[in-house]
Amino acid sequence: MNKNALDQIIEDTFTHEPGFRLPDDFAQKVTARLKRRSQWKSDLSDYLNINAVVILILTFVGGTYYFINRTIVIQAITFISNNILAVGSLLLILNFILFADRVILPLLFNRWKINE
């Protein structure tokens, strides 16, 4: 074999596809992953919005009561600061339940549905 023939063989081989393959349903998988990701983003944003609304309502009610009956607000703050651990834990648990319900469970359900 002369050098030109070898050159030609090398050039030919350059145009051969490497052996890496994607499955036939690749496009469907990408679309499903895309939907799952956008669903997850929307679920997370829902969860954050609910949190923001609850905080806004509490702030508004607290602020209004501060002007109507300051004693109740001060009592509430005192109660919270005296029981910070219990109140904090309760809020954390409630928040986790909300997070699981709004974000984690839909995500797991989607994955399970895709794997089925």
């Binding site: 994607l22 690749f26 496009a27 469907q28 990408v30 679309t31 895309l34 939907k35």
Partner: peptide, 12 residues
Amino acid sequence: MNAFTFLVNRYR
């Protein structure tokens, strides 16, 4: 989304 699937198949 069908158009996106089409794009994926075209450039995969």
